[in-house]
Design a protein around this nucleic acid. Structure first.
Length: 367
RNA sequence: GGAGGGAUACCCAAGCGGCCAAAGGGGGCAGACUGUAAAUCUGUUGUCAACGACUUCGAAGGUUCGAAUCCUUCUCCCUCCA
């Protein structure tokens, strides 16, 4: 993997760059749609190419449970299995340590999970996760980490940091596949002291990229931004910085401003399935009665396939009638919205107009 | 013509003397969602000048301190027998 910084913003920590993997290159800052189970829900790879997606996310833990990494390996790896020729990043299952906390027990050696599918017991270790991620064959893979909840005590967050550092070292030692770039993940919750420690631990291991984990788990926005700012300052300048699980349009702007290069989030596709759409003026709930006779496109400023062909009224009808096309159209539009947003941000960075773009965005966008 | 059964809020449907403005679904309306246990979850859904008041359980009368619940008549629906 290669990361090149092409330009840095004069008025913020934002930077314009490019990442090249075995499956092509993409410009940064980048938004990566999430396809946990080897599919960005409701969208085909062709849709994603058309939208301009360069890299997507998938999940080692979920694919390990079903269909199993061996099967994906037999299929020729994840790219071949799901017919996606762009880049792929796999998350390790560290987030499931947080989101499935009721179904797991953790110790320094690893994590016992009770499968949410059939209840079967599995022990995940950093070594095991590296083996799974290697078999899946993504271009960028994540260390197995412990994502602590919010709120949580200093001691609890500290334990997660120590464990995450320990596991990062073990992941690095177990990591064999030369075609995959292994990223470290900084934890530390909202405690500056712990973020500093975590960032220092990981930087010492010299990963090709660094993720900021454990944010957007319920903490107030101000805390998230402050933590992000602090953490980014501590990470190596010449390596990509990936803010995990973020975000909303406003968070993408705030993240870029603070020096983030990569983002991923389930929000565009989940909101789509729940009946909401992003627009240049803010998020709208198309499901609501007010749109019943609104024959305008989801976003008048959008030129995506959906906005060119379908109205809010029609999409609302599909939602109310529980037609799956609603999910598909809204997913397509929402992913397009974020991909297009990132494109505009990069363009502004290229022109040296990021600050102006930032201001104009928030002038229009209401949330 | 005779014998039964039934009519409850937008719909279906419980309730069968006070704890009933009325269970539970559905539908409607709204909210939440950030490395996906999520086509999920939550709230709300008689009216109003609304921590209180008023009008509701096919219609009209009646019994009772008190009725969706008991009695009478009527209207409409369903089943069976002629």
């Amino acid at each position: 993997m290669e990361f090149r910084i092409e330009k840095t913003d004069n008025n913020s920590a934002a930077r314009l760059g490019n990442i090249t993997t075995a499956h092509g290159s993409f410009a940064t800052p980048v938004f990566m749609p999430v396809g946990t189970q080897a599919t960005v829900k409701t969208l085909t790879p062709e849709d994603l190419y058309e939208i301009g997606v360069g890299i997507i996310l998938s999940n080692a833990y979920h694919l390990f449970l079903r269909p199993g990494e061996e099967l994906v390996h037999k299929a020729g790896g994840l790219h071949s299995f799901m017919n996606w020729q762009g880049s792929i990043l796999t998350d390790s299952g560290g987030f499931q340590v947080f989101s499935l906390s009721k179904l797991r027990r953790i110790n320094d050696e690893g994590v016992w999970f009770n499968s949410h599918i059939d209840g079967s017991k599995h022990f995940m270790t950093p070594e095991k996760v590296m083996e799974i991620e290697s078999k899946l064959g993504a271009d960028i893979i994540m260390c197995f980490d412990e994502c602590a909840p919010y709120p949580c005590s200093f001691e609890e967050a500290e334990r997660a940091v120590i464990r995450t550092s320990l596991w990062a070292k073990r992941c690095q030692e177990a990591h064999q596949n030369p075609n995959q770039a292994l990223f470290g993940i900084v934890q530390g919750n909202v405690f500056p002291e712990l973020r500093r420690r975590s960032a220092a631990d990981l930087a010492a291991l010299e990963f090709p990229g660094y993720a900021i984990g454990g944010l957007s788990v319920g903490e107030p926005k101000a805390e998230m931004y402050a933590t992000l700012e602090l953490t980014n300052e501590l990470l190596p300048q010449n390596k990509p910085r990936y803010l995990m699980g973020v975000g909303s349009p406003e968070d993408l702007l705030e993240g870029v401003r603070r020096g983030v290069d990569m983002f991923d989030c389930v929000l565009p596709t989940r909101l789509a399935r729940h009946g909401s759409a992003y627009t240049s003026r803010g998020r709208i709930t198309v499901r609501n009665a007010g749109f019943a006779e609104d024959f305008s496109p989801l976003d008048p400023d959008c030129n995506c396939y959906v906005c060119k062909n379908y109205s809010r009224a029609y999409i609302r009808h599909l939602i109310k009638a529980e037609e799956i096309l609603a999910h598909r159209l809204l997913s397509y539009h929402n992913v397009h919205f974020l991909i297009h947003l990132m494109g505009s941000i990069r363009n502004a960075l290229k022109e040296g107009e990021f600050t102006r773009y930032y201001r104009e965005f928030f002038d229009k966008y209401r949330f």
